[in-house]
Amino acid sequence: MADTSPLDVLEKRITDLESLVFGNADKDALYPKGKPPKVQCIESMLVLQNKIMAAVAGKKKLTSVYQNLPALRRYMDPAYTDEMGLSEEAKAEVIFAEEDYLRRVASQLQTVKEHDESLSSEHVKSVPTLSGKLQELSQIHIQQQRLSNPAKGRVICYMSAIAQMNTHTAAPVFGVRVVLPSAALRQIGAAKG
């Protein structure tokens, strides 16, 4: 190791870097040794910069955005948002203030973990497949409710009629005491006679 010079180490690192960048491609085809490159990198970047500046020229909003780029980069930095946030003491105070809530959530989570076997059983796993059948049953239930509403109204009407008759006669009707007014009794008697 002592025989290798720093230049050899640097050359090895450059070779490794080139193999990572170019992979299996032939880098000498794109960048042949001994020949100057056709377009210098700095020149191409300068051309691009000039094109961008020409496109932006006269547009005040874009120039203000370019002027604010360093501030935008700073605001987008996660370290800056950490600095802007609460201090450690404030974070601790928030956690202590929510201690009861956190304990409740932790106990609920523990309960869910205890019932994990029940929740992961085949019966629970098959619930999505039964949703179609549940939909059909709910439709049948709604139809039956619609059909029973008129009958329910009739039963209520019948019961109120029986209750009214009970207030006017002492004789039970169908096991229910019905009281008829005296005029109604006279009409019934006249109809029989």
Results as ranks from 00 to 15, higher is better:
Arg186Lys: 14
Gln143Lys: 09
Arg104Thr: 11
Pro181Gln: 04
Ile95Tyr: 08
Gln108Tyr: 01
Lys51Trp: 01
Ser64Thr: 09
Tyr101Val: 12
Asp16Leu: 15
Gln40Pro: 09
Ala54Gly: 02
Ser87Asp: 13
Ser87Cys: 12
Ala92Ile: 07
Asp16Ile: 11
His168Asn: 01
Lys12Glu: 15
Lys27Val: 04
Glu93Gly: 10
Thr169Tyr: 05
Pro70Lys: 04
Thr81Cys: 11
Leu185Thr: 05
Glu11Pro: 00
Ala183Asn: 05
Asn24Lys: 14
Asn50Trp: 05
Ser120Gly: 02
Arg73Ser: 09
Met84Arg: 10
Lys152Gly: 08
Thr111Tyr: 01
Lys27Glu: 00
Leu17Pro: 04
Ile14Gln: 07
Leu119Val: 02
Leu72Asp: 01
Ser131Glu: 15
Leu147Ser: 06
Ala90Tyr: 11
Leu180Ile: 09
Leu119Phe: 02
Ser107Phe: 05
Ile142Asp: 04
Val112Leu: 10
Leu86Pro: 03
Lys133Glu: 15
Pro36Phe: 09
Val178Lys: 03
Ile162Cys: 01
Ser107Tyr: 08
Ala191His: 11
Gln135Leu: 15
Gln187Trp: 06
Thr169Ala: 01
Leu10Met: 09
Arg104Leu: 12
Met84Lys: 07
Ala57Arg: 10
Val173Thr: 03
Glu11Val: 03
Thr169Ser: 01
Val94Ser: 07
Arg146Met: 12
Gly58Leu: 01
Pro36Ser: 14
Leu86His: 08
Leu180Met: 09
Cys41Thr: 07
Leu147Thr: 09
Leu48Ala: 12
Glu11Trp: 05
His123Ser: 10
Leu185Cys: 10
Leu119Asp: 01
Lys12Gln: 14
Cys157Phe: 08
Ser19His: 13
Leu69Val: 15
Glu93Val: 06
Gly34Ala: 11
Gln49Ile: 10
Tyr101Thr: 13
Val65Gly: 02
Cys157Ser: 10
Tyr158Glu: 01
Lys51Pro: 01
Leu137Trp: 02
Pro70Phe: 06
Leu62Met: 06
Ile42Tyr: 06
Leu102Lys: 09
Leu130Arg: 11
Ala170Gly: 05
Leu62Cys: 02
Ser118Pro: 00
Ala57Glu: 14
His141Asn: 08
Tyr31Thr: 10
Val65Pro: 00
Ala184Val: 08
Glu83Ala: 07
Pro6Met: 11
Met159Thr: 12
Tyr158Leu: 06
Arg13Pro: 02
Pro78Trp: 02
Ile52Phe: 14
Cys157Tyr: 02
Ala184Arg: 06
Pro181Cys: 03
Lys91Ile: 14
Arg104Gly: 10
Ala163Pro: 00
Ser118Arg: 05
Ala57Leu: 04
Gln143Cys: 05
Ser126His: 11
His141Ile: 05
Arg103Ile: 13
Leu10Pro: 04
Leu72Asn: 03
Ser44His: 11
Ser107Val: 08
Leu130Asn: 06
Ser160Val: 00
Ala25Asn: 11
Lys27Met: 02
Gln49Val: 09
Ala2Ile: 15
Gln164Leu: 13
Thr169Gln: 01
Val127Leu: 01
Val9Ala: 07
Ala190Val: 13
Ala90Phe: 12
Pro6Asp: 15
Ala106Cys: 07
Asp28Gln: 10
Asn149Met: 14
Gln187Phe: 08
